[in-house]
């Protein structure tokens, strides 16, 4: 029965090739989808800032909060500029996931922001908007435009890594300083870690 054996080997080989194709296509599709997801996060982060700039300018002119798109649950409340690193970003209210996907978020510390002598805390994603934080040095100038359009100038005085399990956010200090917060370490792959990188900047003379 040599003929029979030959046929069965050929068909088995055909099946193997087909299986390989199916597996390879599945792997390819899933890999592409993952890359798409990753790219989408970056695309959202960059493109949203364009829409946010429009909303921010309108809200500065009209003195009322303006939503960047009708279904947004956050709105621009300021602008952050780091001259040395060429950073210019629109700040959103709140630090929910929905806000941070589009821009750095201002922590709502319960006080109304009518007076500009309170401390400002901004959170941002370490791999999109706030990835510049790893390049910040002592003495760098950070500038924030508040909701009244006033420009506040800050100078970086220190950076530290904080464990969010044991330390709380310094919310209600009456010192007028600025804190930038992002996840740490910058190149970690996993999310949800307990460490935070905090840059502390002190209020210096204002512009205008």
């Amino acid at each position: 029965m040599p003929d029979m054996a030959l046929v069965s080997t050929t068909s088995r080989r055909l099946v193997t090739i087909r299986m390989t194709w199916v597996m390879a296509s599945l792997l390819f599709a899933f890999g592409s989808w993952l890359i798409g997801q990753g790219a989408w996060i970056h695309l959202k982060a960059v493109s949203a800032q364009w829409l946010l700039q429009q909303a921010w300018h309108t809200s500065l002119n009209t003195h009322v909060p303006v939503k960047p798109w009708p279904w947004a649950d956050t709105w621009p409340v300021g602008r952050l500029v780091v001259p040395r690193l060429d950073i210019d970003q629109i700040i959103l209210t709140g630090t929910s996931g929905q806000a941070l996907a589009f821009g750095p978020g201002k922590v709502q510390n319960g006080q109304d922001s009518a007076h500009d002598s309170q401390n400002i805390i901004l959170s941002g994603h370490r791999d999109t908007h706030f990835s510049f934080m790893q390049d910040i040095r002592h003495g760098d100038r950070l500038i924030v435009q508040n909701h009244q359009g006033k420009w506040l100038s800050f100078t970086v005085r220190g950076m530290e890594v904080i464990d969010s399990r044991t330390q709380t956010l310094p919310m209600n200090q009456d010192q007028a300083d600025l804190r930038l917060i992002t996840c740490y370490p910058f190149d970690a792959l996993s999310t949800g870690g307990p460490l935070r990188y905090v840059v502390q900047a002190e209020r210096t003379q204002d512009l205008n």
Binding site: G38, A39, I41, R126, C183, L189, G192, R196
Partner: peptide, 14 residues
């Protein structure tokens, strides 16, 4: 507590 979730899974996905 005030500590926001400040990392995205973008790099992991990529």
């Amino acid at each position: 507590v005030g500590w926001a979730q400040t990392a995205t899974p973008a790099t992991l996905y990529l």
